[in-house]
Design a protein around this nucleic acid. Structure first.
Length: 397
RNA sequence: GCGGAGAUGCCAGAGAGGCUAAUCGGGCCAGACUGUAAAUCUGGUGCGCCGUGAGGCGCUUCGGGGGUUCAAAUCCCUCUCUCCGCACCA
């Protein structure tokens, strides 16, 4: 498998208009200008984002011109993709810019913004905010209501009677215009962005009279189709502390192993197939998941960090020991009401919550269960508080 | 513009004057079982206070504001927003 083959197949969901057409252009040696856009409506990037970043990096390494587009303009409109209810909160351009900077910092774990052929950062607010009414109408003129309404998401909202604001409805036009403004040859994005990206393809065809390719990458899911890393508490953030990162990866369902290896690592496909076969033959998937966790931790940090994270994981959870490097809480108070201690250390979100945790036998001090929230406890320097299975805190006085 | 329906906790969705801090489900948290997996089972899931415990008490919450009542998510008025239908389409 050569580099172009790899680029066009691994971790690729679909290519529009066709893989063959894109391959032909690439084989001709032409260098493309491509981009992926992100609406920075959050602050943390998770491993789901990494799928796209890795693909961007491949393009970058092959010498193509890659743009990292921060959607400080589109973000103000609010992308309805994947949202079953109307958006109520809209971000200001300032918030989006700030978040965008965070995105860049985090994504630098995977893609390069310096060195030879660096990835360029652009902000679409720079052109979108300048559009006048005439231009917007002009853009809109390239679409018909019928085309727009075909979109599943819109159909669903109509059927279920969920509001669909025109603001959201217009979103694909804005995103589509980005492709025209930057005059790109290709757009990369998650498969949930297909509609928006194809809107751009239409516009480029109509306004610039050329082909814009669209490459979608699969969303990171397990075999049941559940999104990985999107659910609130379980987000595996790219910048999570290595031990957390390793642990959260281990907590993924077994179904996700093959998918994650394929989409998030450079492990050769043949090797992944081998693992798949072994698991089917009855080998404990945990072994392979550990490999995965190691690979990922290494990729986003370093080999030595990954080794430590793995050691810590094995020690803590497989041998049930207390991890070595844990967060500390500094206090000069030694006598504590356990409830207040949990709140002060943020191990519990409120006093009621703290009480509940204690009642549910989730809290340990130096490996012995705290059975009552009423009797005070004494914490010495170095005492370890454990809440649930995962949360540890060391007291420093 | 007219008519009808509606706005409930993280989501979804019951409730129609006191038994409702609010059914059930999803999510989330904790426990059991484990491979910190999944599946499964159990408990919990507004905030604060008292009590060794069982439990008790107070405060804030059902779109916003006002009112009726000893008592309101539940009744009345009003405002805002949404959905559906009809009309309008110069």
């Amino acid at each position: 498998m050569d580099a172009i083959e790899e680029l066009l197949t691994r971790g690729v969901d679909k290519i529009y208009p066709s893989r063959e057409a894109l391959e032909k252009v690439l084989r001709s040696g032409k260098k493309l200008k491509l981009y992926q856009g992100f609406d920075p409506t959050g602050t943390k990037l998770h491993i789901g984002h990494a799928v796209g970043f890795r693909k961007l990096r491949q393009w970058q390494e092959l010498g193509h011109e890659v743009i990292f587009l921060i959607g400080d303009g589109t973000g103000q409109a609010g992308d309805p993709s994947g949202k079953k209810t109307a958006r109520e909160h809209f971000f200001t351009r300032e918030e989006l810019r700030q978040n965008g900077k965070d995105y860049v910092m985090q994504s630098a774990k995977i893609i390069r913004f310096d060195g030879p052929n660096p990835i360029k950062i652009l902000y679409n607010g720079d052109w979108l905010n300048k559009l006048g009414l005439v231009e917007i109408l002009d853009i809109a003129g390239h679409f018909t209501l019928q085309q727009m309404l075909e979109r599943d998401l819109y159909q669903e909202r109509m059927k279920s009677g969920t509001p669909l604001s025109l603001r959201e409805f217009m979103y694909p036009l804005l995103q589509g215009y980005d492709s025209v403004a930057m005059d790109v040859d290709l757009e990369l994005g998650g498969s949930d962005q297909t509609f928006n990206m194809l809107a751009g393809r239409t516009l480029v065809g109509a306004m610039l009279h050329k082909e814009k390719f669209v490459m979608t990458v699969p969303l990171l899911t397990d075999e049941r189709g559940t999104k990985i890393g999107k659910t609130e508490g379980n987000v595996i953030g790219l910048t999570d502390a290595p031990n957390d990162f390793f642990g959260k990866t281990m907590a993924l369902g077994d179904d996700a192993i093959v998918n994650c290896f394929t989409l998030l690592t450079d492990t050769p496909i043949e090797e992944i197939d081998g693992m798949k076969k072994k698991m089917e033959a009855g080998e404990n998937p945990m072994v392979f998941k550990k490999l995965l966790a190691f690979e990922l931790t290494k990729q986003f940090n370093s080999t030595s960090v990954a080794k430590n994270a793995q050691a810590s994981f094995e020690q803590t959870f497989q041998d049930r020991e207390t991890p070595t490097d844990i967060e500390e809480f500094t206090t000069n108070q030694t006598e504590w009401d356990p409830v207040e201690l949990l709140v002060a250390t943020k191990l519990a979100s409120s006093k009621s919550d703290a009480k509940r945790l204690i009642e549910q036998k989730a809290v340990e001090l130096n490996s012995s269960l705290i059975t009552s929230h009423l009797s005070r406890i004494t914490v010495a320097n170095g005492a370890i508080i454990k809440v649930g299975k995962k949360k540890f805190l060391k007291i420093r006085t």
